[in-house]
Design a protein around this nucleic acid. Sequence first.
DNA 1: GTCTATAGCCAGATAGAC
DNA 2: GTCTATCTGGCTATAGAC
Lengths: 203, 203
Amino acid sequence: MAKTKDINTENQILEAAKKVFQIKGMDGARMQEIADKAKINKAMLHYYYRSKQLLFEAVFKNAFALLAPQLNTILNDDSSIEEKVRNFTSNYISFIIKHPYLPSFIIQELNRNPEFILKLKEQKGFPNIAKFKKQVILEIEKGILKPIKGEQLFINILSLNIFPFVASPLIKAFANIDNKEFKQLMNDRKTEVANFIVNSIKT
Amino acid sequence: MAKTKDINTENQILEAAKKVFQIKGMDGARMQEIADKAKINKAMLHYYYRSKQLLFEAVFKNAFALLAPQLNTILNDDSSIEEKVRNFTSNYISFIIKHPYLPSFIIQELNRNPEFILKLKEQKGFPNIAKFKKQVILEIEKGILKPIKGEQLFINILSLNIFPFVASPLIKAFANIDNKEFKQLMNDRKTEVANFIVNSIKT
DNA sequence: GTCTATAGCCAGATAGAC
DNA sequence: GTCTATCTGGCTATAGAC
């Protein structure tokens, strides 16, 4: 019984820390706010995670581990580029709608501390573009795709899928739309973006 | 003579503050670091700008004022959509290469404080999508463009141009490239992105 | 494991001399 | 206008009782 309580508390803390860190970032987050959200005492945070830095790293790794497998589907799957673009776009946008703060959190913290990604790169399962590049070359040779560099296509796919969520306050302001309309636009993008990409690259 | 010194000091501070705030963000920035960079005393910062918050706002408004006119060229210019896409993409990527921290700074701080954009919206010259939308509809009717919503096209243009810079640590890691190769890729994008977009939307 | 109380530090802001 | 010295508050982290 004591043991289940451990796990509960530790998890409560991690969940609370996620919410606070993902919105406020490492520098803006306060241990007090995390403690309040987890409905425990501030001292408990240190009991379980030693320091703010370690708690942050736990949250960050957790967040990245959610994101990476999504990318691997488009990089390492065996279906055609067109199929992968359509599947990925639909799945990824659905995924981000469920975790709206995740991409900007990852990006913001990596900009703050770019060396951090070196540690992540060592881990297996880290997204790698090599296979995707080969496939693009192959499909171009077969006449399925117009000439394009694999890197550029991959950057384009990521940009179109992720950017609107990262820059949502700007998008809403420029397009003069409220949250509801924004959500509608993002839902439409599940197919719109795939069509946009496929239109551009298919012969 | 005393007056020229004022202007110099105030400018030195603003330049130093730009560098620090744009890299570290509001929460991560330290007044001491800004003072050191400006080669003046910490007390001077408060003499000229009263508080960290006011100094930050000066930097932020300055940064946004640089960005907005760039966007207005694609929104309000009278040339065709294709011409605007080609011009904008080339100019905007050149612009960001010169100010690499600007987009992520704006985006990060707006995510931290989304209400802030309401103040910006009131100012004249704030980018507005209305004219662009009408033009898209018109060119679709004329058979120049394939059907697409103006909002989605605008989001796509922004995404493709800005995202790689905002997420540069991720891009470098996934594509396994160093800073030099990254810069080369971004240079290529000045024309690559325009072609990608035009290919997709032209009939 | 969980709490209260507090140590210790650091950053923003100000007072006051020059 | 510019400096040094200092105040003040807030935050991370820990000590120590239960």
